[in-house]
Design a binder for these strands. Sequence first.
DNA 1: AACGCGGGGAC
DNA 2: GTCCCAGCGTT
Length: 345
Amino acid sequence: METSKQYPDFVHIGMKILLWFEKNGRKLPFREEKSPYFIWISEVIFQQTRIQQGMEHYLRFVERFPTVQHLASATEDEVMLYWKGLGYYSRAINLHHAAQQIMNDYSGEIPSDYRALLRLKGVGKYIASAVMSIAFNQPYPAVDGNLYRVLSRFFCDDYDISQSKAFDYFSELAMRMMPMERAGDFNEAMMDIGAEICTPKNPRCTLCPIHTDCMAYSVGKVLEFPIKKKKIVKKKETIDYFFLHDGQSFWAKQRGKETFWKSLYEFPSSIPEKYSEMIYDTYQVRHQFTHKDLTINIHLLERKSEETLEEMSIMEHFEKIDFDKMDNFSFPKPLQDFLRNKFSL
DNA sequence: AACGCGGGGAC
DNA sequence: GTCCCAGCGTT
C-alpha cells in the first residue's frame, strides 16, 4: 500500500486550507499560547461537545484548575462539580486520573510523546494526535468526525466510517494533504472547516476554500457523504425515584461508576412497601440519551419529620442534602431541572 | 469488533 | 417532538 509520506500528492490543497485558516480560523482561548495542558483539556471537553456548548465549562475549568498539579490534587467530587452538565462523565473521572498519572510518571509535564500520551486515561489516538500536532507541532493527523466528513466529501470516498479501520484509512488521506511543518495549524483548520462549513446538514460549500477541488461538490453529492452503515439502536428504560424531604433537606446518594451518570447524585430508587401510600404526586420527565430513551418517574412523598425518615432503613446509605447547599453536588440534568422547577431554587 | 456513554442545537 | 452530532474504555 502506498504510504502518505511517499505520496503527499494533495499538499497543495493543504496549503489552500492554511491560507484560509490564517484569515478565517476561529479565535479560541486555548489557541493563543498552545500550552499542552490547555490543549489537552480543551480536546477532552470538546471532543464530543460543540464549542458554543462547552466554552463556559472550559473557562471555568481552567480557571479553577490552571495546571496539572491543581487538577491532580483536587477531589474527584470537585472535578465533577466543574463538569456538571457537560455529559459523558467518565471523561471527567479519566481526566482527573490522568492528571495524577502525569504527576507520578512525568513530573507534572505533559509528555511530548505519542505513545506516552496514549497511556493516559481518556487519551486515545485522536487526542494524542491533536496534542502532538497542536502543542508540539509534530505531523500527526487528528482524525475525528469532522475529518471523516471533510475528506470523504473531498475525495467522494464511500469508505464506511463506522468501521474501526476507518481511522487508519482517513489518517492516510489526511497525511497526503498535510503540510508537514504546520501539522497543528492544518489540524485546527480542518476542525474549523468541519464545524463551520462542511457541516452534516446545510453545508456552506461556497465559503469553503477547497470547494472547487471537492469531488463530491463537483457532482452534487456532498450530502451523501460520509457513509455510515451502522445505525444507532435506541433502547427504552424507566427509572423510579422517590423524593423525600423535610422542608429543608432531601435525600440523595452518589451513583456508582458502572453505567451512566457516573458519580453523579440521585434520589432513592425504592422505598419500603408500607410507605408507598405517602406518595401524593408523580413528576414524570422523559430524557433522551444517544443510545437510550429514558423515562424518569419522580414520586413525591409527603413531607415527614426527620425522625420518621431516619427510621426508614432504606435511608442508611443516603445523604441528607440541604436545599440551599445542592449546588455543591452534581446532579444529572433532569434531576437538576426537577429541583429547580419544582422548588424554584 | 461491538457496545455504552450526554447534552444541546437545528428543524 | 425528532433527528443529528463522536472518541474512548470496556468487554
